[in-house]
């Protein structure tokens, strides 16, 4: 793991956390998300079906938490490269997220490293977001890897 091309400010920011942000989980937002991913599972849209399946209300699809907002990390946490692609996610799920929940998010800069690849030198930025519900229960964590690079002229 190399850090040759990474500004010192960015390396020093490892471990920094965003301030928490509360999000209301709305039934309509869950439905719109399920429609957008074209997943017609009734647990996402039909309240009585969801309740028969032992949920408190319609439940959010596993990746719905992508749509939940987080406060940004401080300004200095920025790659010197202008373009970014998503490298992947690791989700851990502990409790279901249902309509009516209030989810508090917090994001931490976990790691930064660089590597050469087909997009040239790429800086990888690893962030962990935690999602906690109104009962102070951790419902999920998501670790995301953003790959930043400098676009070449075509």
């Amino acid at each position: 793991m190399a850090r040759e091309n990474i500004p010192k400010d960015l390396i020093n920011a490892i471990g920094t956390e965003s301030s928490p942000l509360e999000n209301d989980i709305e039934k309509g937002a869950i439905k719109r998300f399920a429609e957008a991913i074209e997943d017609s599972n009734p647990v996402y849209i039909d309240e009585s079906y969801a309740k028969k399946s032992n949920y408190r209300n319609v439940v959010a699809p596993p990746t719905f938490l992508r749509s939940v907002n987080t406060n940004p990390l401080p300004e200095n946490i920025k790659s010197p490269y202008s373009a970014v692609v998503d490298g992947g996610s690791v989700w851990e799920y502990f409790e279901p997220v249902c309509a009516g929940d209030v989810i508090t998010t917090k994001t931490k800069l976990q790691d930064v490293f660089d590597r050469d690849g087909r997009l040239g030198n790429m800086i990888f930025i690893v962030r962990v977001t935690s999602y906690t519900n109104q009962k102070s229960k951790l419902v999920a964590t998501q670790t995301t890897t953003s790959i930043t690079y400098e676009p070449k002229e075509n």
Binding site: D39, P62, T63, G88
Partner: peptide, 15 residues
């Protein structure tokens, strides 16, 4: 979107 592909793989499992 990578996350959309992530959603497809989540559906594979939940279905």
């Amino acid at each position: 979107h990578g996350a959309l592909k992530n959603a497809f793989l989540a559906q594979l499992l939940t279905d």
